[in-house]
């Protein structure tokens, strides 16, 4: 009994540095930001900063724009990454080898450099535009537009998401797929009934990562996005840095955090369900 209590105390002592660090750099700033966001203009505490997010036309546009870019980017990233992961896991050949060797390259290029590279490539007077011009093809507006942000999000998120999904697919034994084929399942049935269910947890993790990374992104939307509407990250910087409205910026940060929490909730709920099913 005493030995068990000693072990419990020792465990608490061992975990406390990590817990304290988490408390100081994550939990306290969140609480502090939330408290700041409740400060009203007349010095009191209310929800007026949150009300402003939904009553101001420009702010509403920013929220809708952010959600639109985030949803489109997340869907495209997952679609492309899943397709690449499937291709690399279940096919062979020179093309597969080439993709395997190169798909991680974007991870090693700093974000600012990659973003300027995209401006040089896809801008109105960029390389692609100049190459297509002799053919009489005019490139649609990609830079300083939501399309530019989506393209940058693909560049930034596809490698890591593909890596996650590839490792999940590698964990599915070939024999399990063989047994599905053996009972007569075609490619689509094998994917829908066996491969996807066995990799959906990682899919959910990937979705959470991409969603959070895109919704909170700053560099690409700042350099590639339009002046209006703006992604919440860019708008937050303006409200905080240019308009000097710390309380409003705090409300925007908490709102963004809540948006991410929604996805986090679904992820945790799914994990809890799986855990309950295993018990």
């Amino acid at each position: 009994m005493i030995k068990g209590r000693k072990e419990a105390v020792l465990g608490l002592i061992m975990v406390s540095p990590a817990f304290l660090l988490l408390l100081i750099i994550v939990v306290l700033p969140i609480v502090q930001t939330f408290v700041v966001s409740l400060h009203s203009e007349d010095g009191g505490y209310d929800l007026s900063r949150y009300a402003f997010l939904f009553t101001d036309r420009l702010m509403r546009m920013n929220i809708v724009f952010t959600l639109k870019v985030t949803v489109i980017s997340s869907l495209l990233v997952l679609l492309v990454s899943y397709a690449m992961a499937l291709f690399m896991s279940f096919s062979s050949g020179k093309l597969v080898d080439l993709i395997r060797k190169t798909y991680m390259i974007p991870l090693f290029i700093p974000g600012v450099i990659a973003t300027y590279g995209l401006i040089n490539l896809l801008g109105n007077h960029g390389w692609l535009s100049r190459m297509l011009l002799p053919l009489g093809i005019a490139l649609p507006r990609l830079i300083f537009d939501e399309k530019g942000i989506v393209i940058a999000n693909l560049w930034f998120n596809i490698p890591f998401t593909t890596m996650l999904l590839t490792s999940a697919l590698a964990g599915i034994p070939a024999s399990v797929i063989e047994s599905a084929k053996d009972i007569g399942a075609g490619r689509l049935s094998v994917f829908l009934r066996v491969i996807f269910p066995l990799s959906y947890k990682t899919f959910l993790v990937a979705l959470t990562f991409v969603f959070m990374s895109v919704i909170g992104s700053f560099t690409a939307p700042y350099l590639l996005g339009p002046n209006s509407p703006q992604m919440l990250g860019v708008s937050m910087q303006q409200v905080f840095g240019i308009f000097r409205e710390q309380e409003q910026a705090a409300a925007m940060a908490v709102f963004t955090f809540l948006l991410c929490s929604v996805l986090g909730y679904f992820y945790i709920r799914s994990m809890a369900k799986d855990e309950a099913a295993r018990m």
């Binding site: 063989e178 047994s179 084929k181 053996d182």
Partner: peptide
């Protein structure tokens, strides 16, 4: 014919049941 089209069925050494079903 591919495996899914053959009139055969295999019982595998490692059972190969689908763990999520």
């Amino acid at each position: 014919l591919p495996p899914e089209k053959r009139p055969t069925s295999m019982v595998f050494q490692s059972y190969n049941l689908w763990p999520h079903m």
